[in-house]
Nucleic acid binder design. Structure first.
Lengths: 347, 347
DNA sequence: CTGAAAGCGCTTACAG
DNA sequence: CTGAAAGCGCTTACAG
């Protein structure tokens, strides 16, 4: 069933059918209704490719989840999407749908899959894309922006290349303040030997959190001690390994972790070292994943407003596409310290 | 940049350019390499819509996540994708990518969004689709299958309409055995007053688990008592509410919940009633979400092999599309009882 | 208000 | 081995 068929049945030309499909005003109400009736009766839906080729706007965007984890690759084992990725994904799809857009989701698990992302833009499958999980200053992302495609990136410092990042939409959590406030909270609890185990420093967020940590210490006249700082991957195992090593050489009274998964690993390492949370060591995470409230003790953590970030990404990107304007934006979304029971006063 | 441009630069016709792009054998190696070189140099990628319209196979499939929850709707609040959905989604995207397919993900949060799903098939945006989360015998899904489109459904009883479900790919966990084994495990622990709080009975899985529960009791000569059975939505609140009501009228020694979220709600309700898990009441969940191992006590639950189910769905569907055969299949994927610490012998 | 026609960017028989 | 041409199913100036 194609438009010609509908036209024949309705006794009009394809042009007229097309006009009613695209809501042109210049077709008499009676004709419009008759054609609409036939369209419905025959379950006719115009071919998407043909429409796009003929010039109708393509209303699909891409979501690229870059999730290259050494662990998962080495074992070749499938790992669940993190809360961060799955929440953002769901919310982006939802918001896009509200604006009449669909989303093509691509997961990049190894560098070889990167070719898919360029393709989707260049072959016009999508009219814009959102990136999450990439390393800072990802060259492919930069290339796509430079080529003039519409892009929104979550978690990317704009400072590193203002020329490029002023041509797209950038959304970040206020990682600096999140870390700063968390550390200040610990300082108020009289901690001074506060360790910081960051996630991979190639991610903008990890770097910003480290900066917030340092600044909070400095502002409180507490020296920044390098042996209290380490970087590991953003996973439970990463946190476990880092804290294991840390405790072998240092006696922190509190540890600020790169995210909640790492905090869970940290708790395990602390327990194995025969110490208690928060009795011996206080712990602060980042993310506020669902598990956090059920941990023993419930985890104090910094919550990101993922729903807001997703809306910002989807709405700005789609607006830029719809209005055909070269929208550029830089959002910093507040975070919230969720105080639970994993921290206590330092003795 | 289009194929004509490449042709002009290479001094050949569009036909020849097209031939090298589509790997036709009948073009001399030297010409092929020259053209490939130019294509790369100019970053040319053929337009996807044009190719599809011209007859090249469309390599995108749809994934439809049907997630209509009374709770989320009434409050209008965004809820994270469940572990079940997000795991399946990630795995399906991964497997599809391995076979050269992309996936368009659509979330259906209210009945009005249903029109999008038919559209995607009828307008040929996708060449097949996978459904998860739908109620049993979803009329839209049935209509799409009847219209001849390629469909894979996860969690759908085939018994209810063999005519239709023999025309598509159906994948289920072995819910019956999962429930049966869980109840048998409880019976071995000397429980006889075992309650069953199922999820929404419109889902095939909920019904099958209830059947497994009943059969296990009957096989052990334990009467099935209706007041020990209830149905609620597949959420933490659902479990909480159901168990609250249950405990007001009954004294079960064990409760089998529809899934892990419900089990978490159940634990809360039991605690509020001044009882202990497993001391006073043993608990078994279903799913094995990440949280389960961190609960206090760690939850005994039935684990679904989501990775396997996703692969089955993606691979069978894409094979059916690629080979253009009307593949039909019915898979029942085993489940595994994960024994942890939420059950103990009945006194 | 409406139809005939050009055009979107490809692929693929067809003919040579 | 290769090009000219038809065709995929639409949309949209253009002319009336």
């Amino acid at each position: 069933m194609k438009s010609t068929d509908i036209a024949r049945i309705a006794g009009v030309s394809r042009s007229t059918v097309s006009r009613v499909i695209n809501n042109y005003p210049n077709v008499p109400e009676e004709t419009r209704e008759r054609i609409l009736e036939i369209i419905k009766q025959y379950n006719y839906v115009p071919d998407a490719s043909a429409r796009i080729l003929a010039g109708i706007k393509n209303t699909t965007i891409g979501l690229f989840i870059i999730d290259i984890r050494p662990e998962s690759n080495s074992k070749g084992r499938r790992i669940a999407l993190s809360h961060y990725f799955s929440y953002l994904t769901g919310a982006i799809i939802e918001d896009a749908a509200k604006m009449g857009y669909r989303v093509l989701v691509t997961m990049i698990n190894n560098s070889e899959m990167y070719k898919d992302v360029k393709q989707a833009f260049y072959n016009k499958t999508i009219s814009g894309g959102i990136f999450i999980g990439q390393k800072s200053d990802d060259p492919i992302v930069k290339e796509i922006i430079t080529a003039g495609y519409k892009v929104a990136i979550i978690d990317q410092s704009i400072e590193s290349d203002k020329d490029i990042y002023s041509k797209c939409i950038v959304i970040n959590s206020d990682n600096f303040s999140g870390a700063y406030n968390a550390i200040q909270y610990l300082i108020n609890l009289k901690h001074s030997r506060i360790a910081c185990i960051t996630g991979e420093l190639e991610k903008a967020s990890a770097l910003e959190r480290l900066d917030g940590y340092k600044k909070a210490l400095l502002d409180a006249d507490i020296p920044v001690i390098n042996s209290l700082i380490a970087s590991e991957e953003f996973t439970e195992n990463g946190g476990y390994r880092a804290v294991k090593k840390l405790l072998a050489r240092e006696k922190p009274t509190a540890i600020f972790l790169g995210n909640d998964s790492m905090a869970i690993g940290a708790m395990k390492a602390i327990k194995e070292a025969g110490m208690k949370v928060p009795g011996d060591i206080s712990i602060v995470g980042f993310d506020d994943v669902e598990i956090s409230q059920y941990l023993n003790p419930p985890l104090t953590t910094v919550k990101m407003r993922l729903s807001e970030m997703a809306s910002l990404a989807a709405n700005s990107l789609i607006t830029a596409i719809d209005k055909e304007l070269n929208f550029s934006a830089n959002y910093k979304v507040p975070v919230d310290l969720m105080i639970r029971e994993s921290c206590t006063e330092s003795k």
